[in-house]
Simulated assay, not measured.
Amino acid sequence: MNLRTALVFVVTAGLLAGCGGEQAQVSSPTTSAAPASPGPASAGTPSSAAPSQATDPCAPVISQMSQRQKLAQLLVVGVSPSDPAGAAETVREQQVGGIFIGGNPTAILTGGALDPVHAAARWGVSVAIDEEGGRVQRIDALDGSIPSARVLAATMSPEQVRGLALDRGRQMRARGVTEDYAPILDVSAQPDDGPIGDRSFSTDPHTARTYALAFATGLSEAGVTPVLKHFPGHGSAEGDSHEGAVTTPPLDSLRAKDLVPYEGIADYGRAKVMVGHLTVPGLTGQQPASLSPAAYGLLRGDYRFTGPVITDDLGAMRAITSDHPLPDAVLDALRAGADQALWSSGGKVSTVLDRLESATADGELPATRVDEALGRVLRAKHTCG
C-alpha cells in the first residue's frame, strides 16, 4: 500500500471485510505474550515446499475448513476506520484472513475497539496498517509523528532506527495491530514528493537494506510483522501505480540495484513481502509483477523467500483496476503465486469468494495452490505451527 490520499475513500465507502478461523483463535494483541525475536532461520532459509500432511501441524486446522473458508483466509480486505462494529461483523460473517485499516480516522484504533475484531476470528486475523513514517502514517494523531525513511537514514544510526521501530511497534501492538506495511525496501533518488521519494531510506541499495533491516527488526521485536515492499523494486520505476501502469528498468538492472535489499532475506526474520504492480522488462512480459508467476518465482527461487507473500492493493490502483475486475485480479494473483490478495476499498468479499470457489471447482485455481498459500497464512498468524 502507498499514499494516504489513495486510502481516504475507505472511510466514506462504508467498507466491510471479514476473517476466519476455528478453535485455534489467537489472543488479542493487547494481551498477548511477548513475541519471539526475529532470527535468520525464520523467514527465508527453509525449502519453499509445503510440509507434508504427516508433519504439517496446520493439517488438522485446515481439515476443519470448507473450501470457501480456506479461500477467505487468502483475502485481506479494507475496513472503515470509523466503524469498529462493522469490521467485527464482517470478520465474523466472512472469516477472511486479514483486514487493512487505511484513512485518517482513529476510532478503530482506540479504546480496545479491535478486541472484538480479533475475537470474531475463528482462525485468527491479521490487522494491518501503513505506518512508514513521514507522509504515510496511521497512528500519528494518537502516538505522535515519526520522520520519513529518508530523514531517519540521514539523522539516525541503524540501531537508533531499530529502537524507534521497536517503540512504534509496541504502540501499534497495544492498539491491536499485528502487521505494518513497512519498511520500504525501494531504492530511490526521486524528489521527496515522488511516488516513492522520501519513503525510501536511500539511493544506495546497501544503505537502504541496512536501515530497512533495522526498522523490520524493531517491529518484529515488538510483535508486529513487517511487510517488505514493493518487490521487485519501485524506486527506479517510471510512473505511479495509483495512477496507471508502471515500468521498471530491465531485470538485470534491478538485480544490480533495486533487488539488493532483498538479498539475504532471511535476516529480516518473520516478515511478509508485498509484490507491487510493476511491469519488469525481461521478467513479467506485459503483466504487472503482482499477477506474474515469473515475479513470484524470482522471489521464491533466486531470493529464497519462504514466508507469506501479499499483493499490493488490487482494488484502488489503476495499474490493476484499469484492466482487471477485482474478482479476476484476485484469482490471477493467487494463481500466480500470491498467498494473500489485498484490496483496501473493502466490500465485495462474497463476490470474490464466489469467483474463487468457481475457479477451484473447475481446476482453474488448483487445490494444491490454495493449501500451500493457506499453510503459510496460518503459520504466520501462529494459528498452527
Results as ranks from 00 to 15, higher is better:
residue 277 H to M: 12
residue 188 S to F: 01
residue 187 V to D: 01
residue 238 E to W: 08
residue 201 F to G: 05
residue 232 P to Y: 05
residue 266 A to V: 05
residue 181 Y to K: 10
residue 188 S to C: 07
residue 188 S to R: 01
residue 271 A to D: 08
residue 295 A to W: 00
residue 225 T to C: 02
residue 202 S to F: 13
residue 252 D to F: 02
residue 309 V to G: 05
residue 270 R to T: 04
residue 243 E to T: 13
residue 206 H to N: 13
residue 272 K to Q: 13
residue 217 T to W: 00
residue 303 Y to Q: 10
residue 280 V to W: 00
residue 290 S to M: 13
residue 303 Y to K: 14
residue 241 S to K: 15
residue 264 G to Y: 04
residue 216 A to V: 06
residue 259 L to G: 02
residue 213 L to V: 09
residue 236 S to W: 00
residue 179 E to N: 15
residue 207 T to A: 04
residue 266 A to C: 09
residue 256 A to I: 09
residue 286 Q to T: 15
residue 265 I to M: 08
residue 283 L to G: 04
residue 272 K to H: 13
residue 273 V to M: 09
residue 271 A to P: 11
residue 187 V to A: 02
residue 208 A to N: 10
residue 171 Q to H: 10
residue 211 Y to M: 11
residue 236 S to G: 15
residue 239 G to M: 02
residue 172 M to D: 07
residue 184 I to S: 14
residue 255 R to W: 01
residue 210 T to V: 10
residue 173 R to H: 11
residue 205 P to S: 07
residue 204 D to W: 06
residue 254 L to P: 06
residue 294 A to G: 07
residue 184 I to M: 14
residue 205 P to W: 00
residue 209 R to Y: 01
residue 179 E to P: 04
residue 286 Q to F: 03
residue 270 R to L: 09
residue 266 A to F: 03
residue 257 K to G: 13
residue 235 G to K: 08
residue 208 A to G: 03
residue 177 V to K: 03
residue 272 K to M: 15
residue 182 A to H: 02
residue 215 F to M: 09
residue 290 S to I: 05
residue 251 L to C: 11
residue 299 L to G: 00
residue 181 Y to D: 04
residue 245 A to G: 11
residue 217 T to M: 03
residue 177 V to I: 15
residue 265 I to E: 01
residue 185 L to W: 00
residue 193 D to C: 09
residue 243 E to H: 13
residue 273 V to W: 04
residue 165 A to Y: 10
residue 198 D to P: 09
residue 287 Q to M: 14
residue 250 P to M: 07
residue 193 D to W: 07
residue 176 G to A: 10
residue 166 L to R: 11
residue 168 R to M: 07
residue 250 P to F: 05
residue 185 L to N: 03
residue 283 L to M: 09
residue 236 S to Y: 07
residue 221 E to A: 08
residue 277 H to D: 11
residue 262 Y to G: 11
residue 168 R to P: 09
residue 264 G to P: 12
residue 184 I to A: 12
residue 264 G to K: 14
residue 295 A to Q: 04
residue 272 K to V: 06
residue 226 P to A: 01
residue 276 G to L: 09
residue 299 L to I: 09
residue 302 D to N: 12
residue 276 G to Y: 03
residue 246 V to R: 00
residue 266 A to P: 06
residue 244 G to W: 01
residue 245 A to Q: 13
residue 300 R to A: 12
residue 269 G to P: 07
residue 198 D to M: 04
residue 199 R to Q: 02
residue 289 A to V: 10
residue 190 Q to V: 14
residue 199 R to S: 07
residue 170 R to Q: 14
residue 308 P to L: 05
residue 224 V to K: 02
residue 309 V to W: 02
residue 244 G to P: 03
residue 185 L to C: 08
residue 299 L to T: 03
residue 175 R to N: 14
residue 256 A to W: 06
residue 212 A to Y: 01
residue 261 P to K: 11
residue 208 A to M: 05
residue 176 G to V: 03
residue 305 F to D: 06
residue 225 T to M: 01
residue 213 L to W: 06
residue 214 A to Y: 02
residue 176 G to T: 08
residue 278 L to A: 05
residue 307 G to M: 05
residue 298 L to C: 04
residue 260 V to C: 13
residue 283 L to V: 06
residue 293 P to I: 04
residue 268 Y to M: 12
residue 274 M to V: 14
residue 191 P to S: 12
residue 223 G to S: 05
residue 269 G to L: 01
residue 265 I to Y: 02
residue 256 A to L: 12
residue 268 Y to A: 12
residue 281 P to C: 12
residue 223 G to K: 09
residue 247 T to P: 03
residue 203 T to W: 00
residue 192 D to E: 14
residue 237 A to H: 03
residue 243 E to A: 15
